[in-house]
Design a protein around this nucleic acid. Structure first.
Length: 491
RNA sequence: GGCCUCAUCGUCUAAUGGUUAGGACAUUGCCCUUUCACGGCGAAAAUACGGGUUCGAUCCCCGUUGGGGCUACCA
């Protein structure tokens, strides 16, 4: 059987990191079985629709490397399109299908029209809460005679369609992650299936859609666990085979409350904007609630596809802890080299006005190489590299090595300038410079620090920076000597 | 309140009816080194609590506590 999973967000904003994890797990389960991953849009709540959110969610998914096989997609111009033969994949375009099945449910006596007003429902809830009773609909309209109900409907009375849950017994299902979960039927609400406005609720649409889109594994957040019996009842009424259920624990704030915007950034876009690499986010998020059981922690998407196991998904909620994300980002930054490195970093440097992008690509790579292991994220990169492009300002005092003195600097710097002048442009690379200057230091019986510290500070203007020879190479001979000249003026 | 669910270092987690309870991030010490970063080697740090079952429980059972979710004509 072909495995088919889906991610089905509501278009109410940006893709959330928790949503990314859900999508990723669903994607991995499909892909490792050679199956399909679909994207469906659940826009049955028209009030909460946010313009542009579908586009933004798809972009975030794409950024993370999650490819959509079927469903809603973006074309080359960024316009929303739908691919696949089981569409439409947007719920607001599937109203006829829901209507048809709602009618069937009603005709077969498995649902009923409810005419209760918002006020009555509100009073009922208040009463139940005040008396510490279980809350829920009291099935007031359940026993209205169907023909009587039909008359009221035809007379234009406002109504919803509610699902008839069994009044006795228990509902048990096996969740792929939690195992057997049991609910008492009497405590399960007669959930609204079709709202007054004719739109289905999530509970109804999700079942119809998952069935017709031939979803085999429903992977979703834990918040759906308690409504699953309602969904399963629907499958039973329609005599459809239910998919496998896998409910993921939620992502948490540092204080273990449900991950929220108040306590930090939760949109995937926030992290791409901050200069985290998609591989880092994906790896990080994958490990929040799953691990391979080995000590390997760096996983590409391809490796995840191969090694992900549903059985190893963790039941408890995981704190979304950015410290480890920083570490992942550094790991992925470190392995980026050459043109790949330039490709990823260049936009940030261009944006900061440091380079135009027309520069020599190898030189750009060397520039970025200077700081790539010293920054956590790409936003930090332009600031870290700025000293290469703008003559740095600094206090002459920092030219002095901790074990040296200003007098020493005054003595050595001119000699060093004189010596560097003798090095040809062909030899002006970090390896050659290192060996030549090294020999020179030995010959003159200086200590490394007394020469290299002021050299480095002259070039960087900073107490902490990359090594002097790497900077010198990137700067080139002229600029290196120019900066040494500046330093000489200061002392 | 009711229902469901979860519980190992600060965080992400591994493991087993008998282990010095392992790893990673973060913290910290040392080494490398001109500085920072990287890297290397160490340190500190956990089985929520109470009962059982058992020769023996972190692991199995029950309870307590705590966290989370649901309790909408939102998803």
């Amino acid at each position: 059987m072909m495995v088919r999973t889906r991610f089905a967000p509501s278009p109410t904003g940006f893709l959330h990191v928790g949503g990314l994890r859900t999508a990723l797990y669903a994607y991995l389960i499909a892909k490792q079985n050679g199956g399909k991953f679909l994207l469906r849009i659940e826009d049955t709540d028209r009030k909460r629709f946010v313009e542009g959110s579908i586009e933004s969610m798809i972009s975030s998914l794409k950024w993370a490397g999650i490819e959509i096989d079927e469903g809603v997609e973006l074309d080359s111009e960024g316009k929303i399109i739908q691919v696949g033969d089981k569409g439409p994949y947007v719920q607001s375009e599937r109203l006829d299908l829901y209507k048809k099945h709602a009618d069937q449910l009603l005709a077969e006596g498995n649902a009923y029209q409810c005419f209760c007003t918002a006020e009555r429902l509100e009073d009922l809830k208040n009463y139940q809460q005040a008396n510490k009773l279980p809350t829920g609909y009291d099935k007031f309209c359940r026993d209205i005679d169907p023909s009587e109900a039909q008359k009221r409907v035809e007379s234009g009375e406002s109504h919803v369609l509610r699902l008839k849950m069994p009044k006795e017994g228990e509902s048990t299902f096996t969740d792929l992650i939690r195992g057997d979960v049991t609910f008492k039927n009497e405590l399960i609400d007669d959930q609204v299936m079709i709202k007054t406005d004719g739109f289905p609720t999530y509970h109804f649409a999700v079942v119809i859609d998952d069935h017709f889109m031939e979803i085999t594994h429903v992977v979703r957040g834990d918040e759906w666990l308690s409504s699953t019996p309602k969904h399963l009842q629907l499958y039973k009424y329609f005599n459809w085979e239910a998919p496998q259920m896998a409910h993921l624990s939620l992502l948490l704030n540092a204080d273990k409350s449900k991950l929220s915007k108040r306590q930090g950034d939760v949109a995937v876009k926030d992290y791409s904007d901050k200069g985290y690499l998609p591989q880092a986010i994906v790896n990080f998020v994958a490990f929040l609630g799953w691990n391979p059981g080995t000590e390997k922690e760096i996983f590409s998407l391809e490796e995840l596809v191969k090694e992900f196991k549903i059985e190893k998904i963790i039941k408890s909620g995981a704190v979304f802890n950015l410290e480890k994300l920083d570490w992942y980002n550094q790991q992925y930054l470190k392995i980026l080299k050459g043109q790949d490195l330039v490709k990823v970093c260049l936009p940030w440097l261009i944006n900061a006005g440091l380079v135009t992008g027309k520069e020599d690509q190898d030189w750009l790579a060397a520039v970025i190489e200077l700081e790539k292991e010293r920054v956590k994220t790409l936003v930090e990169l332009p600031e870290a590299l700025k000293f290469l492009f703008v003559l740095p300002e600094y206090d002459a005092q920092i030219l002095v090595w901790k074990k040296g003195s200003m007098d020493e600097v005054k003595k050595i710097l001119p000699l060093l300038v004189e010596f560097l002048n003798t090095i040809s442009a062909q030899d002006w690379n970090k390896e050659k410079l290192q060996s030549l200057v090294g020999e020179w230091i030995v010959k003159n019986e200086f200590s490394n620090g007394s020469v290299l510290w002021p050299l480095r500070v002259s070039l960087s203007g900073q107490q902490n920076s990359p090594g002097p020879f790497e900077i010198a190479e990137v700067l080139g001979k002229d600029k290196t000597l120019e900066r040494l000249g500046e330093a000489s003026k200061k002392i």
